[in-house]
Structure formats: structure tokens, C-alpha cells
């Protein structure tokens, strides 16, 4: 293992301090707050649009059902569905883009700001710095997802009635169970972003320019999303990280349909392992000149 590991092992508290510092720094940045603000605004926009469209709620959702994003048809009858609709609307682009920005910036941003070498001078070790950066990005994944979900729940509760939830299989569950399922969905959505986070971290170790890393990560994200649309590429599509993203909806089936959920989580884990270790290989063997 690296020389860093051989260094003095600090007590657990001090080991966490690097991660805590990183997290606090991340969530204090204006850019992070703006990203979260934009994400919080999406459910508000969706909610208001649905409200205006249906002329004050009530029946009529079925009239133009079938089109539009998933779950929007049920929002007028149950505000909880705004959570699912908003997550389905933000997962393909907004959420991974925000994660891509944060992950892409994690190492390359420090390098371009000239602060990376000072971070490395601290007795922390590159592996641990990388781990701290990755964990911070994962915390951001969860935070971003929860911001969307909580904002959607608040807007949904304000604009629409809440009540018993009809799952997409047609069975009805209590609002409490619906909330539990919503929480589980938020967890799955956050986990779905792990692949992008690992990819972004790897890209971030490749370059010394924060902007370049962010652009490359978001560019990769869009490219992969497009590749996922071509029916001719169906042989490789199961290995593209966004392929099973919408599988979070399987948590709303009764009984829960686990196939794709597990495949999604395994795929994200695979991406985390491959690109995480690639980032480690690159970062621990690279020269830091900035």
C-alpha cells in the first residue's frame, strides 16, 4: 500500500476531520447552494404547472394522461406523487449534472485554485484526501436528492391533497407507508448517482482545470444518456450507468419488483469500484504541480 497508509494513524476523530472540513467547505460554497436552490425550485415549478393546468385540482388528470413525465398524472389526486414526479423529472439531468459539477470540481478545482498542494502538505495522505472528496460528493448526492424530495413534499402538501396512496400496481397503501416508500426512493435515487460521482472524481484527477473536469463529466453524462436511447446499442446498454435509473419506480409496485433495482445498485457499485480505483491510481501516482 502507499506510504500514506504507513503514516501515523490518527485517532478516529481526527481521521474524520478531513471529511468534515471538506463537507463544510462544500456546503458553504455559493455554487453548491445555488445548485441546491435550483434543484429545490424544480418541484415548485412542476407543482405550480400541474396546478394551473388542471384548474384547481380535482378530476381531469386522466384527460391527458399517458403523456408527459412519469407520475405527473397522479399528482393532482395525491401530493405525495409530486415527490415521485419531481425525482423522475430531475434524475435524468438536473441531479446528475449537479453531482457532475461537484465531483468534477473536487480535485481539479483545488488544483486550479492552487490549493491542492497545501491539502497534500497536511499530514493526511492522498488516498485519504481522495476518500474524503468522494465521501463528500456522496453526501452531496444524498443532500441534492433530499432537497428535491423535501421541496416536492412541501409543495405537494401545500397545493394538493395528501392521503392514501395508490401504488402503480393499483393497490392502496396508507400515507405512512407511502412516505416510507418515498424515503426509500430518495435513497435509491441518491445511490443511482454514485456512478456519476465516481466518474466525475476520476475525470477530476485527470486534469488541473476545474471547469474542464466539470464540462467533461457533464458531457460524458449527456453522451451516455444519448447512447442509452439507441435501440441498436441494446447489447451494451445494460452496462451504461443511467440505464436502470428509472427503476426506482419499481419500489412503487406491489410487491416491490426487485430485479432492476438490484441491477441498478450493483451497476452503481461497479462504477464506483472501477472509477474510484482508477481515480486512486491516477491521483496517488500523479505529480501535483499546482
Amino acid at each position: 500500500m502507499s506510504q500514506a497508509e504507513a503514516a501515523v494513524r490518527p485517532p478516529a476523530l481526527r481521521r474524520l476531520s478531513l471529511f468534515r472540513n471538506e463537507t463544510v467547505t462544500l456546503f458553504r460554497r455559493w455554487r453548491t447552494l445555488v445548485l441546491l436552490g435550483v434543484l429545490a425550485a424544480v418541484p415548485v415549478l412542476v407543482g405550480i404547472a400541474v396546478k394551473i393546468e388542471t384548474g384547481g385540482g380535482g378530476r381531469g388528470a386522466g384527460a391527458h394522461g399517458g403523456d408527459g413525465p412519469a407520475f405527473v398524472g397522479q399528482v393532482t389526486n395525491n401530493g405525495l406523487f409530486l415527490v415521485f414526479a419531481s425525482l423522475a423529472a430531475t434524475l435524468p439531468f438536473f441531479l446528475p449534472m449537479a453531482v457532475g459539477v461537484v465531483a468534477g470540481d473536487s480535485i481539479a478545482g483545488e488544483a486550479s485554485a492552487g490549493t491542492l498542494r497545501y491539502l497534500l502538505v497536511a499530514p493526511a495522505g492522498r488516498t485519504r484526501l481522495l476518500l474524503a472528496k468522494f465521501t463528500t460528493t456522496l453526501v452531496f448526492c444524498l443532500a441534492a436528492t433530499l432537497v428535491v424530495a423535501v421541496s416536492a413534499l412541501a409543495v405537494g402538501a401545500l397545493l394538493f391533497p395528501l392521503g392514501e396512496v395508490t401504488l402503480i400496481s393499483g393497490t392502496t397503501v396508507s400515507l405512512g407507508e407511502g412516505l416510507v416508500r418515498a424515503l426509500a426512493i430518495a435513497g435509491v435515487v441518491a445511490a443511482s448517482l454514485v456512478g456519476v460521482a465516481a466518474l466525475g472524481l476520476f475525470v477530476s484527477t485527470l486534469t488541473g482545470s476545474g471547469i474542464a473536469a466539470m464540462a467533461a463529466t457533464v458531457g460524458l453524462l449527456i453522451t451516455v444518456q444519448i447512447l442509452d436511447q439507441f435501440p441498436q446499442l441494446h447489447a451494451v446498454q445494460p452496462y451504461l450507468f443511467p440505464h436502470y435509473w428509472l427503476s426506482f419506480a419499481d419500489l412503487l409496485r406491489d410487491p416491490v419488483y426487485g430485479d432492476q433495482l438490484w441491477r441498478n445498485l450493483a451497476l452503481q457499485g461497479l462504477y464506483a469500484a472501477v472509477f474510484g480505483s482508477a481515480a486512486w491510481a491516477r491521483f496517488t501516482s500523479r505529480d501535483v504541480t499546482a
Binding site: A61, G62, G65, G66, A70, F71, G73, Q74, N77, A88, L167, I168, S169, G170, L246, A249, D250, R253, Y257
Partner: peptide, 26 residues
């Protein structure tokens, strides 16, 4: 099983229901 939606046919006794979650119609 559809992408983020489901079409179900349920029979209980003499009652037959079909539910399309995509369009929220039964």
C-alpha cells in the same frame, strides 16, 4: 411491467378491474 408505470388486471370474484398507472385510468 412498464417503465415507471404498470398496467394491471385484477380479478376478485366477479369483479374485474384494470388499472393503467401511466394515465391513471381504470
Amino acid at each position: 411491467v412498464e417503465r415507471a408505470a404498470e398496467y394491471s388486471v385484477v380479478r376478485d370474484g366477479d369483479q374485474v378491474w384494470a388499472y393503467d398507472s401511466g394515465s391513471n385510468s381504470a
